[in-house]
Design a protein around this nucleic acid. Structure first.
Lengths: 198, 198
DNA sequence: CAGCTGACAGATTTCAATATCTGTCATTCC
DNA sequence: GGAATGACAGATATTGAAATCTGTCAGCTG
């Protein structure tokens, strides 16, 4: 990290923290390390983030948000019917997670630790994702192709039912051959359950 | 544990090991502790189990088998139609897990650690459970009420889709109010997906 | 002689002293 | 005067020496 003399912003601190985490891992990355990498005293970091936990939470949020930028585009894809949207959404979610986990397992493990300790941030992130699912389900109900008494409840059920394919705790199973087929089998069942009876 | 002078059997060692694990936890329960509790030298324990890992695996298997004795009865319950059998089976699985986790969280945590380190034993156990599911699905297909191209694949999908409600990694979420409803929402979707189209 | 013992080597864990870190704040700097 | 510093107290982590554990095996015991 360049000890540039630019003004110290929250964003610069976050970027540097991510870099320090990448190099040292979650257990050994300290606030002092971050300050050193920035060429400032650690007191200055505490001016922008009240605690180490808050700093880590902010980095986690940044990382989660970046990981799923692309996903929200599917939600309102007018060129896909609701069922195709649902399938594409789960495919995209799984692909993004698996790519992150496969490309750099250490970094993924680091962020899994951060996510586990930042309950609130993860909760909001999950609420965001189930919100997207709710909109897809609602679109299906509106179009007359899905049955769902309460789209929000159904969305949560869909999310829970696919946990194995997005919860980082299962990451080591995502590399096994056949996982894609397993996700497809689950999504098939769920989509069938969603369709209005013919 | 009574240092009785009965013959040293594998079964006595297993029972004592479970007791030692209950008292000391997974990290501090040693083979020497088990031998001490039995009033024998630790060399004698190694006569019945080649390694500590093998001993722990055997205890884990015993524990898993005991936990789900009751469950297999549902599989061939002739008085229930396949859909009811499926619902009862998942209800029973979740109830058994949640009771264990809630009644004695420490012991449950202990066995979760053991399960995580005894991959093979857990694999067989899961194979047994999905086998039971396969038979229920097959019964449904035979009765003309379920659609399933490959019952075994479908059974695994059902198992994966409900992971949140039986994987010990999620145990702390099982106490939250509303979980039962969440499981029901997932099972409802899955059952609907299984039914032959009207 | 089948079953058990206990001493042993190498690996792992414990424990307590030492070093580092977190979070605060009076003081310094621009 | 707003931003940054660095010394400080209490909490946490590291380290290395001592203790314990795992797995083996030659020999004891009933």
């Amino acid at each position: 990290m360049p000890p540039t003399s630019e003004t110290l912003t929250a964003e610069r601190i976050l970027a540097t923290t991510e870099e320090v985490l990448r190099r040292h891992g979650p257990a050994k990355a300290t606030v002092v390390d971050v300050a050193r990498a920035l060429g400032v005293s650690h007191g200055s970091v505490y001016r922008h983030f009240r605690t180490k936990a808050e700093l880590r939470g902010a980095v986690t949020k940044r990382w989660l948000d970046r990981m799923f930028e692309s996903l929200s585009g599917v939600v309102d894809a007018e060129d896909l019917d609701p069922e195709a949207r649902l399938r594409a959404w789960f495919e995209g979610l799984f692909a993004a997670k698996r790519r992150k986990a496969g490309d750099d397992p250490e970094l993924f493990a680091t962020f899994s630790v951060l996510a586990a300790e930042s309950g609130g941030v993860v909760g909001e992130h999950i609420a965001d994702l189930t919100g997207q699912l709710t909109r897809i389900v609602q679109a299906g109900v509106d179009a007359g192709s899905f049955t769902a008494a309460d789209p929000a409840t159904t969305a949560r059920a869909l999310f829970h039912a696919t946990a194995r394919f997005h919860d980082p705790g299962y990451a080591r199973e995502w590399e096994r051959p056949g996982v894609e087929g397993e996700l497809e089998a689950v999504v098939d069942l769920l989509v069938r359950g969603l369709r209005v009876r013919g």
